[in-house]
């Protein structure tokens, strides 16, 4: 299923999220099971399926990584749930360093400042990767698509790192 088509939006990575949100709500308003609570069984079933689709589509388009994955899947490149090991040693080294810094945070004189510094670093690199991803997805060539897939895999590391960082931030605050 083409999620862009469902919302009648252009198939592009640089999606207008406000527009996506308002289209999502319009569709939900029309198809939500609450509108069919007193309706026939078939109508109720159809509405549940339809709204489940709409929710899934919105969920996938809203987040940049899932959006990129969906775009690649539409082009015949399935990378969600893949089991694959990384081959870029430089990238892995960099990830390990960031992780070490996070692990040693507790021993810093000012852990919160150190945390902030790492966060800035992560965000900056994530931004760069997202920019590269957006550019790679424009061309629609097999080569650029492979590059985009590689960028998605790298970005996943950064999103995971960000989650861990937030967890540590919580611990520091508690």
């Amino acid at each position: 299923m083409n999620y862009f088509r469902l919302f009648d939006l252009p198939e592009t990575f640089e999606l207008d999220l406000t527009e996506l949100g308002s289209r999502y709500l319009s569709l939900q308003k029309r198809f939500h099971p609450d509108n069919f609570a007193a309706g026939s069984e078939r109508d109720r079933l159809m509405s549940v399926q339809q709204t489940a689709n709409i929710n899934d589509a919105y969920h996938s388009l809203k987040q940049p990584l899932l959006r990129a994955e969906h775009m690649l899947a539409l082009r015949g490149l399935k990378i969600s749930n893949e089991q694959r090991s990384f081959t870029d040693p430089l990238f892995l080294m960099q990830q390990m360093e960031l992780r070490e810094q996070l692990a040693e945070l507790q021993d810093e004189a000012d852990p919160e400042a150190a945390l902030f510094a790492i966060e800035q670093q992560i965000q900056q690199q994530r931004k760069q990767l997202l920019k590269a991803l957006s550019e790679a997805l424009v061309e629609q060539s097999a080569e650029q698509d492979q590059l985009a897939a590689e960028l998605v895999r790298k970005l996943k590391f950064f999103y995971k790192l960000q989650q861990e960082l937030e967890l540590i931030e919580q611990q520091l605050q508690d």
Binding site: P33, A52, N53, N55, D56, Y58, H59
Partner: peptide
């Protein structure tokens, strides 16, 4: 906290 209805 996933919006329902949902199917996965």
């Amino acid at each position: 906290n996933t919006v329902i209805p949902v199917s996965r």
